[in-house]
Write a protein that binds this DNA or RNA. Structure first.
Lengths: 140, 140
DNA sequence: TTGAATGCAAAAAATTTGCATATTG
DNA sequence: CAATATGCAAATTTTTTGCATTCAA
């Protein structure tokens, strides 16, 4: 919490209970859409927060590097703690099933793009689309 | 075109000029949002199509496996021909810059998830987020 | 005290849906 | 002819914005 306060103040921003609650909700959900995070916030006992505050808080937390998001689902972004236990999501294009593999599986790829382009790939929670074992055969 | 007609009929669906025009527009743009595809369709000489028809056509074309989409941008999906010359997008979390590397760079990763999970990763046009060479240093 | 953040309501952006009509096979 | 697809308008869904008020530093 003090970490959060310091990080915010270091950027001229402020520590508010709303931001703390949103961060806690992100932590509690693992990874979830803005809407589910808002629901989680409401469940922590305090008053519900308007969507605008949830979005603005998520944005602030992402700027601090404490939160990040990916596109597992094709519709809404999925927020998670930047430090959350990590994995790469394997999303089936056909049935939507989501499997996971540890980020280490992408280590070689990350090394390669770092070497080739100086790009620091963040594979934590990356979403890779394709066909799961069950659907691959159906792939016409 | 006949390919398209056959593919559609094989699934009990129909060949329409709208679907042909949308497919042509996807081809012409390389990869673009539904909105930009609609604009491209309008540019082909024929009458503009309502958004609903564009979306429904894109959906049909994706079901046939002729078109696919990814999330390069954080907002709207990006449609492209499934057969389009392929590359993996490296999207900078900080400045939004998009770089590309050939899919081959991900070959090892693809082999690995196929072996471990039977998952057929489609890395063509995949979007990987992280920090570009310019922004990596700033990463607080 | 004062600039940043919130809350609320309204607006915007993106996509979907209902349904009558038109078209394909 | 029968079933699918279109066009149009309205409805949804998700996110953003304006602005007066509140609150952290």
């Amino acid at each position: 919490m003090t970490d959060l306060g310091d990080a915010l103040r270091a950027r001229g921003r402020r520590l508010t209970t709303q931001r703390v609650r949103v961060l806690d909700a992100v932590r509690a959900t693992g990874h979830a859409s803005a809407e589910r995070i808002a629901e989680q916030v409401a469940r922590d006992g305090g008053p519900a927060l308007p969507a605008s505050t949830v979005y603005r808080s998520l944005e602030a937390l992402q700027e601090l590097g404490l939160v990040a998001h990916t596109h597992v689902d094709h519709r809404v972004p999925d927020y998670h703690l930047a430090s959350h236990a990590t994995h790469i999501h394997l999303v089936c294009r056909r049935c939507g099933h989501v499997d996971e593999v540890p980020v280490e599986v992408g280590a070689g790829f990350a090394t390669e793009v770092a070497a080739q382009r100086g790009f620091a790939a963040d594979l934590t929670h990356a979403a890779i689309h394709g066909w799961c074992a069950a659907c691959a055969p159906e792939r016409t």
